[in-house]
Write a protein that binds this DNA or RNA. Structure first.
Length: 108
DNA sequence: AGGTTGACAAAGG
DNA sequence: GCCTTTGCCAACC
């Protein structure tokens, strides 16, 4: 039990993302709701991802079922390739069907 | 201690 | 169904 060192919020976000199996995706809103904070905070946690992480950040998308666009870099293109590599199919609008690939987070 | 930034979501037109 | 505006909270300087 973390006596007085509260686990940073983004640390909990990473744990939730790690529980997402390949071929499935989750939205920022879902993570935010599980963490009890706003989606903004979740997005911020992803933006603070350190280099050399083994976290499947590509499985985290927005509520529209589309990959988010970062302020810099071509990560959006890489993310789509990674998801397709896991079996996720994108439509002509570059969007994913959350009703099919949407993964439900565990309570814990 | 305060201000700025940031990978969003929901509602309205 | 698409586009625009508002609100949101936490980390970093």
């Amino acid at each position: 039990m973390q006596s007085k060192s509260p686990t940073p919020l983004y640390r909990q976000v990473y744990r939730l993302v790690r529980q997402v199996p390949p071929g499935r995706v989750v939205t920022y809103g879902q993570l935010a709701r599980q963490l009890g904070c706003t989606p903004r905070t979740v997005g911020f946690a992803m933006a603070a991802l350190p280099v050399g992480h083994d976290l499947p950040w590509q499985r985290v998308i927005n509520s529209r079922g589309e990959v988010s666009r970062r302020t810099s870099g071509d990560g959006e293109l890489i993310q789509r390739l990674l998801l397709e590599s896991e079996g996720v199919v994108f439509d002509e609008k570059e969007r994913v069907d959350l009703a099919v690939y949407g993964w439900e987070l565990a309570e814990n």
